[in-house]
Computed example of a mutant assay.
Amino acid sequence: MPIDAAKVLAAGPRSGEIAWTAKDVQLYHLGIGAGVPATDPGELRYTLESRLHVLPSFATVAGGGPPGVISGLSTPGIDVDLARVLHGGQSLTVHRPVPVRGAATATSRVTGLHDKGTAAVLVLRTDVADADGPLWTSEAGIFLRGEGGWGGDRGPAARPDPPDGEPDRTVDRPTREDQALLYRLSGDLNPLHADPEFARAAGFERPVLHGLCTYGMTLKAVVDTLLGGDVGRVRSYATRFAGVVHPGETLRIRMWRKEGAVRVAVSAADRDEAPVLADTVVEHS
């Protein structure tokens, strides 16, 4: 079997050095749709170096790529086809504001391997700290199709109840046809998002947008709409990837205010509100 569960769960933590610059931050922000309109003062906070603030979801690409999926697949005991891998969920806890430029140590460890029968879910936690202490903690759920069935723990099944009532705000955010090509320059070079032949082999009619691009676009919408554009108010952000987005489609982002938090649901407006992000919560100050 491609997955050796005992070896995976016994794997020790792995550490590496990461670094980023203002240009990396600006490129990430452009990749999630910032800069429209180009001269809007609110957008210049994401694009102009003299005013730059870092959206916390930048943490998912800081240092040149997502610490979850690719790093998780290199865990001892895992040997799977990349075409059968999907990003199942992502969470992020921010310990202090992400600096515009920095160098830090990222330490990743497997915290769970769940047997879903027809698939396995690998949970990878990454802690990042610089010379001044902890910066952020992220956790990625990696869905490995066809790799379950060894009789392991199924993992947690409970999900939060859906939000009640009508959303407090609903915004539409269009994606560009070249959005995935731009976003992948921040480090996620999985061909699923660019190569039509690879996408078809993976079971998709055409390349799909990175889930973490949708993740970033959604957080930006929440910050800009309900948090006064203040990226420093974000404390944590978690979601489950419930469906794909095709570049060029429009995201419909529904937001419900709760005390200290915003509940969010994201759908594809162009495909009969097909779910995109679910179980999504932004905790804030």
Results as ranks from 00 to 15, higher is better:
Ala180His: 06
Ala221Val: 05
Gly133Ser: 05
Val208Met: 10
Gly146Glu: 11
Asp153Arg: 07
Gly146Lys: 11
Arg173Asn: 06
Leu212Asp: 08
Asp132Met: 05
Pro162Ala: 15
Ser138Leu: 12
Thr137Met: 02
Val121Asp: 09
Leu144His: 12
Ala158Trp: 08
Phe143Pro: 00
Thr214Lys: 02
Phe198Ile: 02
Arg125Gly: 00
Tyr215Met: 04
Val223Phe: 07
Ala131Val: 03
Gly151His: 15
Glu139Thr: 14
Arg169Gly: 00
Arg176Val: 03
Thr214Val: 07
Arg169Lys: 13
Gly216His: 00
Asp164Asn: 10
Gly187Tyr: 10
Leu182Glu: 10
Asp127Ala: 14
Gly187Asn: 08
Pro191Gln: 08
Arg169Tyr: 06
Asp130Asn: 05
Asp127Thr: 09
Gly165Asp: 14
Ala140Asp: 15
Thr137Ile: 09
Ala199Gly: 00
Leu192Lys: 06
Phe204Cys: 01
Leu192Ser: 06
Thr137Asn: 05
Tyr215Thr: 04
Tyr183Thr: 11
Pro167Ile: 11
Ala157Tyr: 06
Gly152Val: 04
Phe143Asp: 01
Pro160His: 13
Leu219Ser: 04
Val171Cys: 12
Leu185Tyr: 03
Val128Ala: 15
Val223Leu: 05
Glu205Pro: 02
Gly133Asp: 09
Arg145Phe: 14
Pro167Asn: 08
Gly149Ile: 12
Leu182His: 09
Arg154Tyr: 05
Asp224Val: 12
Met217Glu: 10
Thr170Phe: 10
Arg173Gly: 01
Gly149Thr: 09
Arg184Ala: 08
Ala194Ile: 05
Asn190Phe: 08
Gln179Val: 06
Gly155Cys: 11
Arg154Asp: 15
Pro207Cys: 08
Gly203Arg: 06
Arg176Pro: 05
Arg154Ser: 15
Thr225Lys: 01
Arg145Ala: 15
Arg200Glu: 07
Leu185Ala: 01
Met217Trp: 05
Arg169Pro: 01
Arg154Cys: 07
Arg154Met: 11
Pro167Lys: 07
Thr218Tyr: 14
Gly141Ile: 01
